[in-house]
Design a protein around this nucleic acid. Sequence first.
DNA 1: CCAAAAGTGTTTGCTCTACACCCATGG
DNA 2: CCATGGGTGTAGAGCAAACACTTTTGG
Lengths: 236, 236
Amino acid sequence: MKPDKEPTTKDNGAEEHSYYRPAVAVDVLIFTIINEKLRILLIKRGIEPFLGKWAIPGGFVRENESLEETAIRELAEETGVTDIYLEQLYTFGEPERDPRGRVISVAYYALVPSGKVGVLSAATDVTEAKWFPVNDLPELAFDHRQVIDYAIKRLRWKLEYTSVAYSLLEEEFTLTDLQRIYEIILNRPFDKRNFRKKILSLNLVEPTGKKVVRGVHRPAQTYRFKKRQLSLVEIT
Amino acid sequence: MKPDKEPTTKDNGAEEHSYYRPAVAVDVLIFTIINEKLRILLIKRGIEPFLGKWAIPGGFVRENESLEETAIRELAEETGVTDIYLEQLYTFGEPERDPRGRVISVAYYALVPSGKVGVLSAATDVTEAKWFPVNDLPELAFDHRQVIDYAIKRLRWKLEYTSVAYSLLEEEFTLTDLQRIYEIILNRPFDKRNFRKKILSLNLVEPTGKKVVRGVHRPAQTYRFKKRQLSLVEIT
DNA sequence: CCAAAAGTGTTTGCTCTACACCCATGG
DNA sequence: CCATGGGTGTAGAGCAAACACTTTTGG
């Protein structure tokens, strides 16, 4: 139970005694789209430091629990959802990030389908939690502003080069739904014809055969994502 | 000094006492190119577990030292070099990765210019360290095989989409040098004319005006990287 | 019949690929 | 003068961008 030289063995036996052990937390950035805006789930701090400020939900790693398991647990505690897109983002370890002492925090980010969101926001009302549009954030605790900025950059990048976008949609969706995800997150318009051409040429999506009527206009074909597996470039 | 609820405040006061604190290590994957091969610096373990197996150099985070500082320190201890490309790779935290107890390890990877290598391999002879070609690795300790595989994937990706390649070269280099870096790491040939056209069109490189003679043939123009700063896509 | 989103092709420019020969040097 | 890598251009294919009208529905 007392690691002495891991993971290396650079034999300068000077460090045989107990090592300095920082606290290790996992923070989970939970994104979704509500009302045409990319939003993140934040919780209001009830204690010092940063009392009253908003923060990314997170918690400490437990014994016998992997980092990913911690993230999944946190996610479930906050939102009740499981089985959604989750990816390690970055590990933040500046000594001064927490005024109370050293905390190394491994950040993950999760994408929740826009549809499950009603449920979520209800479930999270108990502990003071809210979905904030990412371009209208409140005052944040710790270095959480930078963490969020970094996550958004990564999300934008992933959206352009992989198929994460599907993680923000329900099983069945229209191509317009998909296009809207891209437009909202990347914050620029796409040409409808070119967009559809590109998506269909990627062959990641197939029509369900069903149509859905969503207003006083022509019904739309719905599609489903072929394999519920992500990305061509599965390197972060 | 005793963080109680960081970084979140999900008020279930059950965890007010001292948290479980795993050991936190930083491992540094140091890559370079020697003799037309991509190589990684490994050290031989002198103690159990995995005695005699090779491992990625690393060490524990110290108080008041950021993760990056730890990585820089490890890198300097192993190789003597400073001021080289360093990037956080991933954080590995499976509870069973170290048989002796929980160790969370934040992996960084570094790229050392091919030229500084002579110096390095000499300097590292003291502690049993060796440069191994990445496609001819010895038996490795812990989960280090996967860590290396992951790093190589990331390195390949970075090479294609950013300008990390320059981190493996000296200040001044020929276009053939650069092409060779790409060919070695991506393990496929490039067309000389197309390669040069592309590199020059990116405008990241400028001729030094000097030429270098390196054999019984026409001397080559040398170039330098315009801004010693990396990547267009500065995300992960 | 009107409003609103769904759906659909073609042209143009640009980027990527394939490909072969002359040049400068040292021995 | 020979061997060796340095250096250069062009044509064709495939991909990305721009762009406008018809269809289906509910009210």
